[in-house]
Amino acid sequence: NQASVVANQLIPINTALTLVMMRSEVVTPVGIPAEDIPRLVSMQVSRAVPLGTTLMPDMVKGYA
């Protein structure tokens, strides 16, 4: 089972991601792979992401 990136806190719209905002977790459906966490740092979210939400490619500007 592949771990995905999950929000560790509420991430407001247009916030630049930092390591403390993200954790890896095995979830369904699968989201952005956990190994991409270093690449996500400083990228902005395109919408508010609630705590515990799996990050999907369309939620991060410039990821897809």
Score class of each variant (00 low, 15 high):
residue 1 N to F: 15
residue 2 Q to I: 12
residue 2 Q to V: 10
residue 3 A to W: 08
residue 4 S to I: 02
residue 5 V to C: 05
residue 5 V to I: 12
residue 6 V to A: 03
residue 6 V to E: 02
residue 6 V to C: 04
residue 6 V to T: 07
residue 7 A to C: 04
residue 8 N to S: 15
residue 9 Q to W: 11
residue 9 Q to G: 05
residue 9 Q to S: 08
residue 9 Q to N: 09
residue 9 Q to A: 14
residue 10 L to E: 13
residue 10 L to F: 09
residue 13 I to W: 10
residue 13 I to A: 11
residue 15 T to V: 09
residue 15 T to D: 04
residue 16 A to Y: 08
residue 18 T to W: 03
residue 18 T to C: 04
residue 19 L to C: 06
residue 20 V to H: 11
residue 21 M to D: 04
residue 21 M to H: 06
residue 21 M to E: 01
residue 21 M to R: 03
residue 21 M to C: 03
residue 23 R to D: 04
residue 23 R to P: 01
residue 24 S to D: 13
residue 25 E to M: 08
residue 25 E to I: 06
residue 25 E to G: 12
residue 25 E to R: 06
residue 26 V to D: 15
residue 27 V to S: 05
residue 27 V to T: 08
residue 28 T to V: 10
residue 28 T to H: 06
residue 30 V to C: 11
residue 31 G to C: 03
residue 31 G to A: 03
residue 32 I to Q: 00
residue 32 I to Y: 01
residue 33 P to G: 07
residue 33 P to M: 11
residue 33 P to I: 14
residue 34 A to K: 05
residue 34 A to P: 07
residue 37 I to S: 04
residue 37 I to L: 12
residue 37 I to W: 03
residue 38 P to F: 15
residue 38 P to H: 13
residue 38 P to L: 10
residue 40 L to C: 04
residue 40 L to N: 00
residue 41 V to M: 08
residue 42 S to K: 08
residue 43 M to C: 06
residue 43 M to Q: 07
residue 44 Q to S: 11
residue 47 R to K: 11
residue 47 R to F: 05
residue 47 R to W: 07
residue 48 A to C: 10
residue 48 A to M: 13
residue 49 V to M: 04
residue 50 P to C: 07
residue 50 P to A: 13
residue 50 P to Q: 13
residue 51 L to W: 14
residue 51 L to Y: 14
residue 52 G to I: 02
residue 53 T to L: 13
residue 53 T to F: 13
residue 53 T to R: 15
residue 54 T to V: 10
residue 54 T to G: 03
residue 54 T to Q: 03
residue 56 M to S: 08
residue 56 M to K: 13
residue 57 P to L: 04
residue 57 P to M: 10
residue 57 P to I: 06
residue 57 P to A: 12
residue 58 D to K: 09
residue 58 D to R: 08
residue 59 M to N: 07
residue 60 V to K: 00
residue 61 K to W: 07
residue 61 K to G: 06
residue 61 K to Q: 11
residue 61 K to M: 13
residue 62 G to K: 09
residue 62 G to F: 09
residue 62 G to R: 07
residue 63 Y to M: 05
residue 63 Y to R: 03
residue 63 Y to L: 06
residue 64 A to T: 14
residue 64 A to G: 12
residue 64 A to R: 08
